[in-house]
């Protein structure tokens, strides 16, 4: 669309910029806070420009550890979060791509029933079924374990649906051609469906990685052992320290660090991510 309306251009840019400011301001404040002396944050006036303690504060987190602030070492927290995010993303993709394959390409008894069972899980996110899920997880002895942290979050239907919809758009002749070419179902899946789903998988991975990384309620419930804390949980722990002022400079530096991996995933997979959302290679 070619248009020449200066006011419209100005107005739309203004809206966009306002949106950017609203989103970025808290991030900026967090960053600024992470570079100040802890006392500055408690003085009553929140500083808006970075202080002079950037190196010192981050050095403190990485080297001296966060025990003072009431949390396990940052390396362990990041590792736990990474394990959880990766396990959820990969687990969900693996399960949903296989179940979508079964539902679309095979005629087995009770297929419709299974389809609806999966469909129903869409209406039951973890938050809704959190008590029974906790009960089951505890009963299986999975509290304070990576399995307990990730498995209940892997089972859900959203991704199955995405793949099902995608497979339904693949012309039937493609699977027939593969059949004539002597490719059995598994070979067809590996040689044709998987490569065609590449962009969908990448797009989904970005979404699920961030979903897993940002999990709060579930890890809070199932982990009591500090060795399994995720970085998101640690922030909550540090904010609610008893009998002392929260160490805002440490908390905010942790917040900044916690934001980096999801940002990196988005930055590096952005091209594939957008491709996966808007186009399919057909």
């Amino acid at each position: 669309m070619v248009e020449n309306r200066p006011w419209l251009t100005f107005f739309s840019h203004f809206i966009l910029l306002a949106g950017v400011v609203i989103v970025l301001f808290p991030v900026w404040v967090a960053f600024v806070a992470s570079t100040h002396d802890p006392r500055d944050m408690l003085s009553g006036v929140v500083p808006l420009w970075p202080g002079d303690r950037f190196i010192q504060n981050y050095y403190e987190i990485f080297v001296e550890g966060m025990a003072k602030a009431g949390a396990p070492p940052i390396g362990l927290l990041m590792m736990n979060s990474l394990i959880m995010a990766l396990a959820i993303a990969i687990g969900k993709i693996a399960i949903s791509i296989i179940s979508a394959f079964a539902i679309v390409y095979f005629r087995f008894p009770l297929r419709v029933l299974f389809f609806w069972l999966i469909f129903i899980t869409l209406m039951l996110p973890v938050e809704v079924r959190i008590l029974p899920t906790f009960e089951v997880t505890a009963g299986l002895g999975l509290l304070n374990s990576y399995t307990g942290l990730t498995l209940p979050l892997i089972a859900s239907a959203t991704a199955t649906f995405l793949f099902r919809q995608f497979y339904m758009t693949i012309p039937e002749e493609l699977s027939e051609a593969a059949r004539i070419d002597g490719a059995g179902p598994m070979k067809f899946f590996r040689d044709i469906l998987l490569p065609l789903s590449r962009t969908n998988i990448a797009g989904l991975f970005v979404i699920l990685f961030i979903y897993g990384w940002n999990q709060y309620l579930w890890p809070l419930l199932v982990t009591t052992d500090e060795g399994y804390y995720t970085i998101v949980i640690s922030i909550q722990r540090m904010v609610s320290v008893p009998d002392s002022e929260p160490l805002w400079h440490v908390i905010m530096a942790t917040v900044i660090l916690a934001m980096i991996p999801p940002v990196l995933v988005v930055v590096f997979m952005q091209r594939l991510f957008i491709k996966g959302l808007v186009e399919t290679e057909k």
Binding site: E173, E176, R179, P195
Partner: peptide
């Protein structure tokens, strides 16, 4: 007999080439 073992080859209306 499975299609692959019938010793036939088929040309489809929409060609059905493997896109990738």
């Amino acid at each position: 007999v499975e299609p692959a073992d019938r010793d036939i080859a088929m040309v489809f209306q929409n060609y059905a080439l493997y896109p990738h």
